[in-house]
Amino acid sequence: MISKNVIHQIVEKATMIRERVLDMTSKAKSGHPGGSLSMADIVATLYFHWLKVDPKNPALESRDYFVLAKGHAVPALYAALAEKGFFPLEYLEKLRQLGSPLQGHPVKKSLPGIEMSTGSLGQGLSVMVGMGLALKLDKKENRIYGILGDGECQEGQVWEAAMAASHYKLDNLVIFVDKNGLQIDGPTKQVMNVDPLADKWAAFGWEVISIDGHNVLEIVGALEKSENVKGKPTVIMAQTVKGKGVSFMEHQICFHGSPCTDEQLVVAKKELLATKGNLL
């Protein structure tokens, strides 16, 4: 059983990721804060509790692999990698700037810890399937983790990959669907309904675990459960809130692809600071 102390630390990291996401995107005057905030607790749990990764040795032979299929939410990943020590925190100031390794969407080899280029939605899961197959061929125990968006599940390729992962019995593959229910043009239910999403994954032969994607205890529990799943891949359906953690950003589509204004940033950071205070 995970200790309260550990949970506390993860939540603290999640808050830190949120702060940095807001700082980075506001400084860049560009980027996707909404979907970064919705997956912040998942990313924090993965990088500060779960994933076997070593910032001092990013190429560690026995590492777990993480692929961010919803590549637009990369500010949260950059923040986690920097905080973890994969690269200096100052790099975060260069998000989306000319010549920066912190591209608008992740680029393989541009930074230590970025395992794959993503951005064109729907492609990440296929790549994870290929990586899972490679590990099986080599009889390696490393595991593949990834995060998809719920809107992303509108891409047909996701289901091609879902079919293949199940066909090839990839029990070394665990993905989260960050189900924040909003996409650029509106609520996912209105734009193109993907529900019942959990049923769809189950029908494709996946182990489905549904959780509150902001409850660290549930995130850890789902990850622990996924380790015992044999002969099939696992999807963790994480119910989330877009813009989570900042009151005026929550459930707001406008923050999908636009950062806070300077004035909003001040308010947002005060709120996050209060969250931090509550943790102390």
């Binding site: 296929s126 790549v127 290929g130 990586m131 197959l133 590990l135 390729q157």
Partner: peptide, 26 residues
């Protein structure tokens, strides 16, 4: 046979899986 993967009638997935295998050194 152990190193051959039929991806079915799904060319986008074919290329994505190829990328993933290559990403781990194949």
């Amino acid at each position: 046979p152990e190193r051959f993967f039929n991806i079915g009638i799904a060319e986008q997935n074919l290329i994505g899986i190829a990328a993933g295998l290559a990403n781990l050194g194949k």
